[in-house]
Simulated scan of single mutants.
Amino acid sequence: MMIERLREYVGAETPTGDAAALNAFADRLAARYTELGASVRRVPMPTGDHLVADFPGRAEAPLLFLAHHDTVWPIGQLDGAMPWRAADGIIHGPGVFDMKGGLVVLETALEQVAGRDHRPLRIIVVADEEVGSPSARDLVTAEAKGVYAAFGFEPPHPNGDLKTSRWGSTRVRVEVTGREAHAALDPDSGVSAIDELVDQLIAVRKIVAEHDNVLCNVGTVTGGGRTNVVPGSAAADIGFRFVDPATEESVLAAVKALQPVRDARLSVQVLSNRPAWQPSAATEALLAKVAAAGRSVGQQVGGAAASGAADTNLTGWLGIPTLDGLGPVGKGAHAVHEQVIAATLTERADLVAAIITSL
């Protein structure tokens, strides 16, 4: 049953920013959560609606579950480089690991606990997680108030361990406006936006080199149009990862203070930000309780820090006891070999059900 549902969910391709595809998938989730007894709200956004589902429970603080229904893959990936394939206990397909598998685990756990005693449950399913959840940050912050603990359904560590902290993640866009001119007849009257951007990216690398434990990836570069025209515009999107808030603040301050090298205009814009979620005694205490829940269903549960970012960064940063990685075990997030181990779908659902009924 879980594999069939996963195939259905993977078959509904949901790239970030495709509002029609995301909203159609949200319809499925909303209908299913309603069937299971939730009160469901849609939070409309131009790039796709977020969902909030509240399940009733005993008069205690709720558990918060964080998930997303967008993927990094475009429409057509399923019929091209990444067809659905299930063989030898391994399932392949776009989004199967990040994180349609996690959605199936959550839904199955909800089925298992239906009618049983537990805390209230609140589920947030975000539509733009893969680009840093820029439209969902305020929603997650508001809905997280007063919860007992937060859990994410992102993939776990390769050995199945949960994630107990995460590096911070910030996306920055550097835009340059130069001046166009004929590259041969009048080059001196032009100002190359591309040359300026290259110099600025070198400056960014120098800033990063001055700090420990910073990752920097220039993910996109655009600009110009013809080799016989001095380019008048150029831009780059940069992804930064930070181990602690102080390093993040220092690096971003230096990047925002960049100045043009030539007669060009420079703009630095923060596109999205997830603060560092650092280790805490509260999360370690939560992990101990989850490990006990795991033992009740015959599973050994461990935890470790993670370098990747997700919506749990925000709840962890807010001081809420938080764990992530409740999705199935697999590998290949954001890669064409994306896959999950089929047997861990059931194992993870059993674990989540035990967590719900024991906390």
Results as ranks from 00 to 15, higher is better:
residue 37 G to W: 09
residue 17 G to T: 02
residue 12 A to I: 07
residue 291 A to V: 09
residue 83 P to V: 11
residue 30 A to I: 09
residue 359 L to I: 06
residue 3 I to L: 15
residue 238 I to Y: 13
residue 315 T to Q: 14
residue 272 S to Q: 06
residue 289 K to S: 08
residue 83 P to Q: 07
residue 161 D to M: 12
residue 209 A to G: 09
residue 258 L to M: 13
residue 26 A to L: 11
residue 271 L to Q: 11
residue 212 D to G: 14
residue 345 L to P: 07
residue 146 G to S: 09
residue 223 G to F: 10
residue 232 G to V: 13
residue 62 P to L: 03
residue 224 G to H: 12
residue 325 G to A: 14
residue 106 L to D: 10
residue 112 Q to F: 01
residue 132 G to P: 02
residue 353 A to Y: 03
residue 73 W to I: 10
residue 30 A to V: 07
residue 206 K to D: 15
residue 109 A to P: 01
residue 38 A to W: 12
residue 253 A to T: 15
residue 164 T to Q: 05
residue 98 D to T: 03
residue 295 R to N: 12
residue 356 I to Q: 02
residue 315 T to F: 14
residue 280 S to M: 02
residue 333 A to D: 07
residue 210 E to P: 00
residue 289 K to L: 11
residue 245 P to Q: 08
residue 203 A to G: 04
residue 316 G to T: 14
residue 223 G to A: 13
residue 76 G to T: 14
residue 177 T to C: 08
residue 186 D to K: 07
residue 5 R to T: 13
residue 183 A to N: 06
residue 147 V to I: 12
residue 116 R to E: 08
residue 290 V to H: 00
residue 153 F to L: 15
residue 337 H to C: 02
residue 335 A to R: 15
residue 244 D to C: 03
residue 37 G to T: 13
residue 29 L to G: 00
residue 157 H to K: 03
residue 334 H to L: 12
residue 230 V to F: 08
residue 219 G to P: 05
residue 4 E to P: 06
residue 330 G to M: 03
residue 206 K to V: 04
residue 346 T to S: 15
residue 325 G to E: 14
residue 127 A to Q: 11
residue 108 T to Q: 10
residue 55 F to E: 03
residue 203 A to D: 13
residue 2 M to K: 13
residue 110 L to Y: 01
residue 13 E to R: 04
residue 113 V to E: 00
residue 112 Q to C: 00
residue 216 C to Q: 09
residue 64 L to T: 07
residue 282 A to I: 02
residue 212 D to A: 15
residue 181 A to R: 01
residue 193 A to Y: 04
residue 82 M to H: 02
residue 55 F to R: 05
residue 167 W to R: 13
residue 225 G to D: 12
residue 65 F to N: 00
residue 281 A to D: 09
residue 1 M to Y: 12
residue 335 A to S: 14
residue 345 L to M: 08
residue 127 A to M: 14
residue 245 P to M: 05
residue 98 D to Q: 07
residue 227 T to P: 09
residue 74 P to K: 03
residue 350 D to M: 05
residue 298 G to R: 09
residue 267 S to F: 01
residue 225 G to E: 14
residue 337 H to A: 14
residue 211 H to L: 10
residue 239 G to S: 13
residue 23 N to Q: 02
residue 309 A to R: 00
residue 47 T to S: 11
residue 167 W to F: 07
residue 144 A to L: 01
residue 187 P to H: 10
residue 201 L to Q: 05
residue 337 H to W: 15
residue 89 G to D: 07
residue 226 R to K: 15
residue 176 V to P: 04
residue 150 A to F: 03
residue 281 A to R: 10
residue 313 N to R: 08
residue 334 H to V: 12
residue 345 L to V: 08
residue 334 H to Q: 13
residue 145 K to G: 06
residue 256 K to H: 14
residue 143 E to V: 15
residue 201 L to I: 02
residue 250 S to I: 05
residue 68 H to G: 11
residue 47 T to G: 13
residue 76 G to K: 07
residue 327 G to Q: 02
residue 214 V to H: 10
residue 343 A to D: 15
residue 44 P to T: 06
residue 153 F to P: 08
residue 74 P to E: 06
residue 131 V to T: 11
residue 37 G to V: 11
residue 327 G to H: 09
